[in-house]
Design a binder for these strands. Structure first.
Lengths: 122, 122
DNA sequence: GATAGCAGTTTCCTTAAGGATAGCGCTATC
DNA sequence: GATAGCGCTATCCTTAAGGAAACTGCTATC
């Protein structure tokens, strides 16, 4: 049987390993925050205004919604579009780049489902 | 061009979607905590004792190491083995189940590396 | 007997994350 | 002119996460 240490992660070069750890940490970081996921999910249904998003996410306060939207915007997942009508209409929508998260969502989802099943069976 | 909302996540059934969100949340949760990742990485090099792990992770305090190890153990990623020698030798090692994280680490790492490059290029 | 290492635990403190509530400038509607 | 909705921001407070330092019971070594 091969060693566990050779299966969990293939790179055993130290700088490569550190680079990987940083990358994983960064990826986890951009999804950190209590409401990032729900917001992304709500925005999958199309562009929406601030209060629309707020109403769909039970329990979120405007302060936190604002903060999380800004962070999502900074990371390039969301754009804030201002329609120059009167009164102005502001819409948040997912960017093309947000789709790059698909792979990690799928991986996290599959693992999570499997883990839930495992936890229940113990 | 297909809609963004149809690409980020395939399920648009509400209960399926909620289930996925919960699974992703759970997966993110078990990796949450400042030191989980470094600890898992250190243990990839083989079973190690408390102070060995501590010495390899610069900045970690025994309190946090103890806490994180307990959580990793509860989630089934790590086992605490007590060798009944005198004095007792206690070793922490990765379980077989820890290798199930391989897929999400790979996904997070790849996305993270790509994201770092993107951030630098802006 | 004194010192040091192991495997932690305990206490106290700081920082960060998150929540409740109120309010602001704007416009539209009654 | 009063009320309500939009898109927030500001203030205050609570909870949670994390860190520093000391200490414990054990054994081994000098």
């Amino acid at each position: 049987m091969e060693k566990l240490s050779e299966r969990l992660s293939p790179e055993h070069n130290k700088t490569e390993c550190r680079r990987s750890v940083n990358a994983v940490r960064d990826a986890l970081y951009v999804l950190g925050g209590k409401w990032k996921l729900p917001i992304l999910v709500v925005l999958e249904y199309g562009p929406q205004r601030f209060t629309e998003v707020q109403r769909q996410i039970e329990g979120i306060t405007p302060k936190l919604l604002s903060k999380e939207l800004k962070e999502l915007e900074m990371n390039g997942f969301v754009t804030r579009r201002v329609q120059p009508t009167t009164p102005v209409l502001i819409e948040y929508e997912l960017t093309e780049y947000a789709t790059s998260l698909q792979g990690i969502f799928a991986a996290l989802r599959d693992w999570g489902i499997q883990h839930q099943a495992r936890v229940r069976s113990l």
